[in-house]
Design a protein around this nucleic acid. Sequence first.
DNA 1: GCCTAACCGAGACGGTACGTCGGGTCTTGGG
DNA 2: CCCAAGACCCGACGTACCGTCTCGGTTAGGC
Lengths: 209, 209, 209, 209
Amino acid sequence: MPSVPEPVRPGRKRSESSRTAILTAAWELTVELGYPGLTVEGIAARAGTGKQTIYRWWPSKADVLLDALALKADVQIGLDDHGSYAADLRQFLDRSFVLGLNPSVMRVMRTLMAQAQIDPEFGACFREQFLARRRAAFEVLASRAVERGDFPAGRSPALDARLVFGLLWYEVLAAPPPLDSGSADAAPHALADALIDLLTRSLTPEELA
Amino acid sequence: MPSVPEPVRPGRKRSESSRTAILTAAWELTVELGYPGLTVEGIAARAGTGKQTIYRWWPSKADVLLDALALKADVQIGLDDHGSYAADLRQFLDRSFVLGLNPSVMRVMRTLMAQAQIDPEFGACFREQFLARRRAAFEVLASRAVERGDFPAGRSPALDARLVFGLLWYEVLAAPPPLDSGSADAAPHALADALIDLLTRSLTPEELA
Amino acid sequence: MPSVPEPVRPGRKRSESSRTAILTAAWELTVELGYPGLTVEGIAARAGTGKQTIYRWWPSKADVLLDALALKADVQIGLDDHGSYAADLRQFLDRSFVLGLNPSVMRVMRTLMAQAQIDPEFGACFREQFLARRRAAFEVLASRAVERGDFPAGRSPALDARLVFGLLWYEVLAAPPPLDSGSADAAPHALADALIDLLTRSLTPEELA
Amino acid sequence: MPSVPEPVRPGRKRSESSRTAILTAAWELTVELGYPGLTVEGIAARAGTGKQTIYRWWPSKADVLLDALALKADVQIGLDDHGSYAADLRQFLDRSFVLGLNPSVMRVMRTLMAQAQIDPEFGACFREQFLARRRAAFEVLASRAVERGDFPAGRSPALDARLVFGLLWYEVLAAPPPLDSGSADAAPHALADALIDLLTRSLTPEELA
DNA sequence: GCCTAACCGAGACGGTACGTCGGGTCTTGGG
DNA sequence: CCCAAGACCCGACGTACCGTCTCGGTTAGGC
């Protein structure tokens, strides 16, 4: 590895403590006040930094929030091989629901998805750094199933991905925001069951043939 | 119902021309500049009205836009009985895609969905006046299928609705915004085909049993 | 007077109370903190107005201060005819010194003259609305003396004006700022005496001839 | 005097090239952009130095400018004995006008005088290092005249000094800034003639008595 | 045929946050 | 110990919109 990506620039180094203080402040303010209450001035004030330090490193406050999400909730969702497409799907959906239905995480994700619609610049960033990665994770499952031979014939992983993420996001975006405490957790898991059932059972006709 | 809903108030009547000018201006500004470029002052200026006239009749600019959507695109999607769940689904999905992939309509819908995430007040309004109506329309199809007896056994209309709307919205929200001209129209229809196939074919095993 | 200078514009009228509150606040802040401590934000905060209201009516904070000077100290200095150039000069100088050596007024005048050097835009305004008016006042005295016949032969009112205002301003600008209490008041009046003596006595050689 | 004034401090010596680069940059920026365009960051950038190097050696940018004035224009004005108060005055005024009406020098002097009003710290410095020196130079002339016996009886050198410097500074500060090219040079010299005439002729009545 | 209530346009108002600029300090690596 | 570079905290800038509040003027019932 002879290549040095950072050619030893002169001058003071970026402050890691400021970085994490900013991300934490952004996360907290979003959870407490929602996106309209998230202001660059507020982040700077709570983080004890100058506004310029925020503008120097992030193009918009939505980008701050995206970094904060990566810092806060480790979005990586395990991809262990459970031996079957159904079992892999189950784990993927369960963990996604657990993560996405956490009120704080959910609020931030709703906010990010909303902002991605409104700000094209950030939209591209969000799609690349979040949505695409999640989709890539799903593709690991699907291609594993294809190799294993238990991916339903006559269907494409592309559709399955869209159905899975569509269900997840629609649940997040179309449902009323959780009032305060953890509301019904049963329903989403029933949905996951039904979806898995649909996506895996539908291969039977082919097998019968 | 002899009672008059509007108790014949005295004074000048609401100006219909101002109302439509405001809705048109809001629509155009959103399409041209996106939501950040949609300001109450801008709407008033383009519509040639005072700001107060907007604040008098709508609680927020997102509500203006929601009214504008109702004015502009007739969102009603036909629900003719085509004799089978598959055919009904086909028409529903086709018309939804045609409507939702129109760049102007799509931009406004993305904006409204985004705003619904950010502003809880408007979120409730959007869910009631838009999402719930679309879901009700789908339920007509589903219950028709149930009565007709060709709704797949072992599944619930609730899941189907979520899969249908999840797919539609995910396509709208997760895709990059259309650059300018009408981009690929083929893909969405292939998706619709595959979804219909999945939702209708999966009943066969049951029938076989 | 058929001409109407203000053609009855529509919309809300300018608030007189905001105007005076702004001018008062600007005056006080300058006296208390000096020009570097005079900020538009500070004026707005103390006056209880929005910043925009200041920017709407004045091009810079120096212009606010110039208006405040006109409001606060009535800069008009009496020009009664005292029968001779010497007596008129005496009153003019006395009143000018009394006004200009008032610590508050002096601080503001130093500030305005300084700002006029730094900001060409305001410099033009200050010269027209302040310096030129003071010079015009002096010219009334001088031309009265010329008509009366007791203006010293062989000299021009232009030089006298420059000497008078030069002395006044040099005293204000070159002297250290008054620390706190009223410092020596005797010296300036002695200067005035000597200047009057010089400007009026110098006509004697001519008279002798 | 074996003692070394600078106690041979250890470490790297002050860079003379940085010093002159900073002074030159400050002068140029003031002439080009005026005082508002003179920033420490700008000086450092043009001089190719760090900001810290400026803060290390000068308390404010006005002090930099004062040093730059000393470097640039040799402000010393000759004090040769011309045999009479009138002739000495003439040379003093002529050279002062020549220097002060040079557009670049004038702009810097206006700026320094302005800054001296606004910043008390620098004001003290400017009065000591600039105004007081000029006044001392004038006093050499005056005391020479007193010794020689041709200083006008019944007047004080203090008044003459104030009139001379008052006229000079008022001309600089109250006149509109020169647009670009050298404007009327005749008028100031006529003023100088008239002032000399006034200050020297006025002694005749006394002599007659 | 006036009243009078509600509408309308215009636009000034008190605010909040924006994104930028510059000040003055601190940190890094090199001379 | 000096120096260039540059990140840091901070405060003010001037702008953009917000949502509210007068203004004068317009439109209709209802007396």
